[in-house]
Write a protein that binds this DNA or RNA. Structure first.
Length: 293
DNA sequence: AAGACGTGGGC
DNA sequence: TGCCCAAGTCT
């Protein structure tokens, strides 16, 4: 994309964001690097609406990394509630411990230090550096990837995994000024979340409809590799989820309760030790389990 | 590098 | 009614 076109894209998206940005707690004046970090962990594969109440409860209870680091991992898992992927609670706790040990209790400023924390990958490190510290980073999440795939590449959906070409496009479009780049990152994410959605994009209200390559091409249908959904019924994940729901809601869980929650013996006898191995559960007495103390 | 890893809401 | 999707990370 040439420079004038990129500039037009920037202006349209940034102006739109100015008028339509949601007032989310991790964006407000009260937001801290820590609240941003907590939100990023919770938002990994989980919708904003479900994160909102849990995020508020976490920040109230653990206003700083040191507060969380001083708690047991089990409490973190319990407070995680039904957000899903409870290992994220474990990793956030471990990240808080690392922050206290290696960074004096302050969320690190630099991408490389962030990336070294448990549960922090390229996206989360870029997001924290950008949103919490106003730095210039390519922030490639599913929303941004979809927006760029459509607007720039003219296809409905991006490849299953981030490609070099995709990163090059995102890099070439990143505004030079750090503050503008940071706003561009949230703004493109917001556009993907609210307008350029996966199922039913609102092209009639899209600020960049006139510039969109996918629209210009007549909205060609996706023809890439099959986008695989995840099996659920009868999987280990479902079994583990049942057991964890039990453990979250009670101080401890008996073998009988687990058997009732998941009658299929072989799978149950694989998942229970699996949860213990993952640090999500501990055996407190023979035949009795609980969240880690 | 494909697959594991939770949960619930919307169409 | 199911199927698809939601600010990914780790192995």
């Amino acid at each position: 994309m040439d420079a004038p076109a990129a500039s037009a894209l920037h202006d349209a998206v940034l102006d739109w964001y100015d008028d339509h940005a949601r007032d989310l707690p991790w964006r407000g004046v009260a937001a801290t690097p820590w609240s941003v970090m907590v939100s990023e962990f919770m938002l990994q594969q989980t919708p904003v609406a479900r994160v909102l109440p849990v995020h508020a409860a976490w920040l109230e209870r653990w206003p700083t990394p040191a507060d969380l680091a001083a708690e047991s991992t089990g409490e973190a898992v319990r407070m995680w509630g039904r957000l899903g992927y409870p290992r994220r609670a474990l990793r956030l706790h471990a990240a808080a411990v690392a922050i206290v040990e290696r960074h004096g209790g302050a969320v690190p400023t630099w991408y490389a230090d962030l990336l070294a924390l448990p549960g922090v990958g390229d996206y989360t490190a870029s997001a924290i550096a950008s949103f919490a510290y106003g730095q210039r980073h390519v922030v490639l999440d599913t929303n941004v990837r979809r927006v760029l795939a459509r607007a720039v590449s003219g296809v409905e959906f991006p490849a299953p995994a981030v490609t070099r070409a995709e990163r090059d496009v995102a890099t070439s479009l990143l505004p030079d000024a750090p503050a503008t780049a940071a706003t561009w990152a949230v703004a493109t994410m917001e556009l993907g979340a609210l307008v350029c959605t996966a199922r039913q994009p609102s092209c009639d209200t899209c600020p960049i409809a006139e510039l969109c390559a996918w629209r210009a091409a007549g909205f060609p249908a996706y023809d890439g590799p099959p986008r695989r959904g995840q099996a659920w019924a009868g999987t280990d994940r479902q079994c583990r989820g049942r057991i964890m729901a039990l453990a979250r809601d009670q101080s401890s869980v008996s073998t009988a309760q687990v058997e009732q929650a998941w009658p299929e013996r072989e799978q149950r006898e694989r998942c229970l030790p699996g949860l213990v191995a993952d640090g999500l559960l501990t055996q407190i007495t023979p035949g009795r389990w609980s969240l880690p103390g």
